[in-house]
Design a protein around this nucleic acid. Sequence first.
DNA 1: ACTTCATTGTGTTTATTCTACACTATAATA
DNA 2: TATTATAGTGTAGAATAAACACAATGAAGT
Lengths: 257, 257
Amino acid sequence: MKKVQSRSLTEKEFLDKAPELYLPQLSIDCVIFGFHDDQLKVLLLQWKDSNRWCLPGGFIFKDEHIQDSAERILKDRTGLGDIYLKQFYAFGDPNRALGKHAFKATPATKISDWLMKRFVTIGYWSLVEFSKVVPVPDEFSKECSWCDIDKVPSLILDHNQILEKALQSLRLDVNDYPVGKDLLPEKFTMPELQRLYETILGKTLDRRNFQKKVLALDILERLKERKQGGAHKAPFLYRFDPKKYKKALKEGLKFGI
Amino acid sequence: MKKVQSRSLTEKEFLDKAPELYLPQLSIDCVIFGFHDDQLKVLLLQWKDSNRWCLPGGFIFKDEHIQDSAERILKDRTGLGDIYLKQFYAFGDPNRALGKHAFKATPATKISDWLMKRFVTIGYWSLVEFSKVVPVPDEFSKECSWCDIDKVPSLILDHNQILEKALQSLRLDVNDYPVGKDLLPEKFTMPELQRLYETILGKTLDRRNFQKKVLALDILERLKERKQGGAHKAPFLYRFDPKKYKKALKEGLKFGI
DNA sequence: ACTTCATTGTGTTTATTCTACACTATAATA
DNA sequence: TATTATAGTGTAGAATAAACACAATGAAGT
């Protein structure tokens, strides 16, 4: 496990020290996916000033690997470490500047020149276990919370596009990466796993064929227990077999769903 | 067609003006693929100082879209415009600094502080028609030339990794994008197209099945003519049917090769 | 206690796609 | 005109994916 030390600052400290701490005009934005109540969700922040929503993001320390920046930002917002993070795209429109967009409606309080410049941002997405996340706002935001993927409001800048591109990238990856391991709790049922794939892919799947394909990957273990408390026949619980899972990840999956 | 204006400078002008013209600590690197004599090739530059080879790259004007930067760099090195360019990854190791690597052996002449800093670079690959390219060195290089993909020497910094990652990305895209259109001359034979795919994928393909699949895409037109001059039976010439090709691109291909 | 209902669990049949493979035709060369 | 290397073409078998139906179970209502 990589050690990712958080070095987050207060807003004032940030505004003062950003120019000497961080790379200029380059940022990271994270699309953090979760899954709860049969809904794919994404973690959003709400700005203090404008009340508008945005993706969690941050900046890159001058001597920091961008991958580590992304991990640090993820950890700061969710408390989670050792998470699969996928870099999916860099967004480089010259109009990507907070000065030109975010504060059009509500005039900026006092934002440093450093922050007002045009920024190129590198997008990462990650998959986290909903129940383990403790959402924490950053220096600029007053709230950090989950939002259903199909109820995302208009976000600042090009953040809606970033989210859309992250979803596209996730949909492509779903065939090569067992997303259930990251998004579901340790024990889960087959219908839960299926609904996860259905929400990500945005289409319904045949129950029987789905189960056949998933089990054919040979990375799941069916437990003796069944999930109690549902309104109907109790489904079996499954979990990822750690050894088989790791082996499959190394050798590469071919889901083909 | 997008208008991409070249604004290239001499080396001295560059060193003087870079800080005010370009984004700091951010660069673009292009992996430009070509195909000739049944070989997949990549365009490389040789540095004046160290004689070492590297990928064509450049920087981003402060008000320029990164996609436009990549197009500009491509145009400056090859003379070609209106080319498919794919952004595939951003490389963000904090050790990515010319000062720390490229000039270790041969002490730097006079390189500006600006250039010696750590750079994050955004990688693009593109596919160009070999015969149409006129390779042009940039301010820092004395040579610009094609190199067989399997004879690439040790490059500066992490450029070998960048190339490798570009190849991986290209291999993934080959199923969704008809690479032949960009890499081959207007008229080409089926064997030529097959060898193109074989070099990209690094494996041999069955002649008959390959032809069946390609033709099933319904984007090629077989001409009356045959290719003369070969040592054996003259193969038919094909070309991409412009209408069908555009239509297929919009609706998405599924090659499955 | 019995019925109803929504859901889970499972296997087979069919259609589709992929793979392997062999012979004839032709142009250049000797 | 014989040789040779390559081009052109179709089919049968294997593997994979898609479609589909019925019995079992637990909860809730009568």
